[in-house]
Design a protein around this nucleic acid. Structure first.
Length: 268
DNA sequence: CAATGATCCTGTCCGC
DNA sequence: TGCGGACAGGATCATT
């Protein structure tokens, strides 16, 4: 599932693939995949990319001319660069056409992904409240302590809440909690400052390692050039049966998601 | 405000 | 071989 490292990989790939070529069209093949801002100007395309930014699991791409794109892959969304266009592919929900004749397919089996095209001045309307960026200085143990002090839900649920930390999903939360040696069911407001410091440190570490290898390709995640990431080879608990120290991995449902952890290494 | 559960959706896998 | 059901899960919405 695309989380921060995968979104970062896809966004960088998209920006590099499109380069300075202008986008000439955005077509939608599945109702609801492309959302158009009611205040859009009539002449959006052709438009050159001006800048880009990842916000949590959201990609934002600003276009010259005052418009912006927001892309969210949700669970199965993919951007696929194709220098020679074809008829719409299976599961192709939308498509960017480029002035040089290439296209970028938006493939999304489960159709939850979204592409929003809006006036740049309206961008914030299309983004939810996002918490701290985990790779930026604002993400600290003190910040987490403040966020979590009123919460009793398991720490794993809190870390999946995008309004607390932006960009983490099931895989990386499982992994960072293992590295931080924290049991996923620990009530959020009972995680002490020392443990929160480990959480912050391991969050940064695991995300940086994953970004460095192009993300995690479980199920069918691919970069825009159809390359697999390789962080799946470094997972320690997610979908594992044994932790690196040889203990049996447990799996409990938290917030409706499989939560892999080591009962020996991870403590409340 | 916090927490929970249903919802969206389709491919895959399991058991019978 | 085929079929029903569970499962995968990010975000949003309604409900408690």
């Amino acid at each position: 599932m695309p989380e921060l490292p995968e979104v970062q990989t896809v966004l960088e790939g998209f920006i590099e693939a499109v380069g300075s070529t202008r986008i000439t069209a955005l077509d939608c093949y599945y109702p609801g995949t492309v959302i158009l801002d009611p205040e859009l100007e009539s002449s959006v395309f052709p438009a050159q990319i001006q800048g880009h930014r990842r916000l949590g699991k959201y990609m934002t791409i600003s276009l010259k001319g005052g418009h912006s794109l927001v892309v969210h892959l949700r669970m199965t969304g993919k951007l696929v660069y194709n220098p020679s266009p074809d008829e719409p592919l299976k599961h192709e929900r939308a498509r960017f056409s480029l002035e040089n004749g290439a296209v970028v397919h938006f493939i999304d089996i489960r159709t939850f992904g979204k592409i929003i095209l809006c006036k740049s001045s309206n961008l914030e309307r299309y983004l939810p409240n996002l918490g701290a960026e985990p790779l930026e200085p604002c993400y600290t143990a003190a910040y987490l302590q403040k966020q979590l002090s009123s919460r009793k839900a398991p720490i794993k649920n809190a870390l999946l809440d995008q309004s607390v930390v932006a960009g983490l999903g099931n895989i990386y939360v499982c992994e960072l909690l293992y590295r931080a040696k924290i049991h996923p069911e620990t009530p959020s407001n009972q995680v002490n400052l020392r443990s929160l410091q480990r959480i912050v440190k391991e969050t940064r570490q695991v995300l940086a390692e994953a970004i460095a290898v192009g993300g995690t390709s479980v199920s069918d995640f691919r970069s825009i050039d159809d390359k697999t990431g390789s962080f799946q080879n470094f997972l320690r608990v997610y979908q594992k049966t044994e932790c690196p120290r040889g203990h049996k991995i447990a799996n409990v449902k938290l917030a409706g998601r499989s939560s892999f952890y080591c009962p020996v290494c991870q403590h409340p």
